[in-house]
Design a protein around this nucleic acid. Structure first.
Lengths: 367, 367
DNA sequence: TTGAAAGCGCTACCAC
DNA sequence: GTGGTAGCGCTTTCAA
C-alpha cells in the first residue's frame, strides 16, 4: 500500500544537505535565501531539494525567527457582507505584502473574541486586526499590545485603547441620512439597529456596546434636534438581530397610530425586515413609509423600489487597516492613528415625502 | 517607557518551573495537562504560571507533537453568502471539537488556490477543506494527500481524487427547478451561470471547470429533453461573473425576438442582475419573465415579487465537511465517502405561466 | 564561503 | 511521581 497517496516522512534541510553533500547550514542558507552561498553549492542544493520534493516547514522557521508572516483577523460575523468585503481588502494587501491571513469569527461575542485572541497570540501572529464585539472590555486587546503584538481596530473603536483604528464617521453619516428624511418632510422617525441589549427599547447609552451604534444614534438625534423635532417624535430600537426580533420591533412600531413615516436602518438585513414588515401591515415603500439603510448591499439597487443607502467603503476600510498594521509590524512606533473613511449617501427610490394624512402635523408646522 | 504596553520577553515553561521550584518536565506536564503530576506540584506550577502570566507557545507545541489543532479552509469567494455560511458551519463544529480554523480566499483562481494550499501545508494544518476552483487540476490536492494531510472537498468535486466530498445533487436540483418552469408552461428557457470561460456562449463542456456547473447544466437539459423541448429552445450562458458581463448576456437574451420566458439563475447575484436587466428592457417579473435562482439569499423572500429558489444547505454542507475531516484526522482510513445533502425548491412568486403572446407556440404544442 | 553547534519552547521517553 | 535529556526543523552566531 505504498502508493502515491501514502504519507511519507517529510524531507528536511538535513535530508537535502546530505543529498547535496553539503553541510546543513549551507543547505539552509541556499534554501532560505539568506547568508552567503556559492553558486555551485546553491545549484546542488536546489537540485537536490527539487529531486527530494523538499517543502520548508514554516512552523520551524517561525520558531527560529519569531516572525510568522501571518496576520490574524477577528470579525463579528463573516456572513455579513460588510465584513466579507473588509476581509477581502485585508487579504489583498496582506497577500501583496507577503503575509498570510488567518480569520476567526467572534459571533459578536466578547468571550469568543477573547478566545480567538488567545489562540492567535499563541500561534504567534505578527499582528492582529479586530472588529471588537464590545467597547467595554479591551483587556485582551491591551494584553496583545502588552506582548508586543501590533493591533489595529476595524470599524469599531475601543475608547482608551491606544491603537490605530480604521473606521467611518458614523455620526456624520447618520446625521446626513436623517437630514434627508427630514428634508423630505418626515418628522416621526425611527432608527433600528441590531446591537444586543437587555431591553430592545432605547433607554440609556449604557446598554450599547458598539461605538458605531452609539455614534449613529447620536447623529440621528442630532439631526432631529437641529430640525426642531421633539424627542417624542423619535423611535430608537435596539436588538433587531434576528428576523423574529426585527419583526416584533417593526410590527409594533408600524401598527401604532402614531407610527413613524420613515425608518433609518443600521444594516441591510434589517432593511429587508422593514420590507417584510411593511408588506405585512399593508404599507408600501416609499408611498407610506420611507427607508434609508446603512450598507449598499447588492439587492438594494436591483429590486423595486431601489433603496437609498449609506454606502460604506468596507473594502477600503479593510485595506487601510491592513496598511497600518503592516507598517506597525515593520517597526513604526509613531502615535496611534485614526483613519476615517468617507461614506456616501446614495439617493434612490425608497424615500419620498409622507402622504398628507401622515404628514398633517408636520405640514402645520412648516406652512 | 516601560509601561504596560511595552513588549517583554515571553515567559516559558522553564521560567515557570524555576519560579515553582520544580523541574522543567514537571512544569510542562502540569501546564500541558499530560503525564502525571502530584497535586501539590500542580498547584505550585499553576500558581507560578498565573503569577508570571505564562502563555503557552502553540507553535512550539505543534513542532513537538506534529499536531497543530488547526484546519485550513480554502473557498472561492468569502463574500459569497453561500461560502460565508458554509464556513460558519465548519467553524462551529471545529470549535466544538477543539480545532481552530484558518481561512483563505482563492478568488476562484487555481494558482491562488495552489499557493494557499502550499502555505497551509507549510503551517502544518491537521487537515484541509477546499472548494476547488477547477475540476481539472488537482495536483496540489493529491499532493496534500500524499503528505498525509487529510482533505475534504466542499461543494465541488474533482473527479479522480480519492477523497471525501460534501456536496448537493446539483443535477437533480436543476432538473427539478427546470421542471417547475416547464410545468408552468414555459418552453423557451435560459440557464445563466457565473463560471469563467473563454466564450460566454455555451458550446462544449470542455470549457466548464466546475462540477457544479456541469451538473446543473446537465439537469437543465435533462428536464428540457424529458419534456420534449428542442435544444434550440434552450439558452445556456456562461461567464456571468460581473455585473457588466451579466448585463451584456441578459440584455442580448431578453431583447431577442424569441427571448426566453423563464430563467434559471445559478446564484443570487445573477438573479439580481436579472431583475435589473428585466427592468431595463421593460419586462415585469413574473408577468413577462419567470425566474428561479439557486441560493436562498435573504432578499429573495423579502422583496416584491419574492423569488422562487433552490435552497442549498450551505451551513450543513460546511458542518458535514468538517465532520468527515475531523474523523479522518482522528485516524479514519475507510474508503472515501460522498456526503450528498438535500436541496429544497421553495416556491414563491417569481414563477407564473407565460402570457399568451409569448406562449403561443408552446400552447399549440400542448393543446 | 563554509561548517559546527547553539538555540527557539515544547513534548516525550526513560531512568530513578 | 519526578527529573534529565533528546529531539521537532529551522535560523543564526561564530570560527575556521
Amino acid at each position: 500500500m505504498d502508493n502515491e497517496f501514502t504519507a511519507r516522512r517529510a524531507v528536511t534541510v538535513a535530508d537535502v544537505a546530505r543529498a547535496a553533500q553539503v553541510s546543513k547550514a549551507a543547505a539552509a542558507r541556499a534554501l532560505g535565501g539568506y547568508g552567503s552561498v556559492s553558486d555551485a553549492v546553491k545549484q546542488r542544493v536546489l537540485e537536490a531539494a527539487g529531486r527530494l520534493d523538499y517543502r520548508p516547514n514554516e512552523l520551524a522557521r517561525t520558531m527560529a525567527t519569531g516572525r510568522s508572516g501571518t496576520i490574524g483577523v477577528i470579525v463579528g460575523d463573516i456572513e455579513n457582507p460588510f465584513f466579507g468585503s473588509a476581509v477581502r481588502g485585508i487579504s489583498d494587501l496582506a497577500a501583496a505584502s507577503g503575509f498570510d491571513v488567518i480569520l476567526s469569527n467572534s459571533s459578536e461575542t466578547p468571550s469568543a473574541e477573547k478566545a480567538s485572541t488567545r489562540v492567535f497570540l499563541a500561534k504567534r501572529v505578527d499582528g492582529l486586526i479586530v472588529a471588537p464585539a464590545t467597547m467595554h472590555d479591551g483587556a485582551h486587546l491591551a494584553d496583545a499590545l502588552g506582548q508586543g503584538c501590533p493591533l489595529v481596530l476595524l470599524d469599531r473603536d475601543v475608547p482608551g485603547l491606544p491603537v490605530d483604528v480604521a473606521l467611518i464617521d458614523d455620526q456624520a453619516a447618520a446625521r446626513e441620512a436623517t437630514g434627508l428624511l427630514i428634508a423630505s418632510g418626515h418628522r416621526r422617525l425611527a432608527y433600528i439597529t441590531a446591537t444586543s441589549v437587555v431591553d430592545g427599547r432605547y433607554s440609556d447609552t449604557g446598554q450599547i456596546v458598539l461605538t458605531t451604534v452609539q455614534n449613529r444614534i447620536a447623529g440621528f438625534r442630532e439631526a432631529a434636534a437641529a430640525a426642531g423635532l421633539a424627542e417624542s417624535d423619535l423611535r430608537i430600537r435596539l436588538g433587531a438581530s434576528t428576523t423574529a426580533q426585527s419583526q416584533e420591533i417593526l410590527l409594533e412600531l408600524l401598527r401604532a397610530p402614531d407610527r413613524p413615516t420613515a425608518i433609518l436602518s443600521s444594516d441591510s438585513k434589517i432593511a429587508l425586515e422593514v420590507f417584510r414588515a411593511a408588506r405585512a401591515v399593508g404599507l408600501a415603500v416609499p408611498r407610506d413609509l420611507s427607508l434609508i439603510t446603512f450598507d449598499d448591499a447588492g439587492w438594494t439597487s436591483a429590486v423595486s423600489p431601489t433603496v437609498t443607502v449609506v454606502s460604506q467603503p468596507s473594502y477600503r476600510l479593510g485595506y487601510a487597516a491592513a496598511r497600518m498594521l503592516i507598517e506597525r509590524i515593520g517597526g513604526d512606533k509613531s502615535a496611534p492613528r485614526r483613519c476615517v473613511l468617507e461614506t456616501a449617501l446614495i439617493r434612490r427610490e425608497s424615500v419620498s415625502p409622507p402622504i398628507a394624512a401622515d404628514a398633517v402635523e408636520g405640514r402645520a408646522r412648516t406652512p
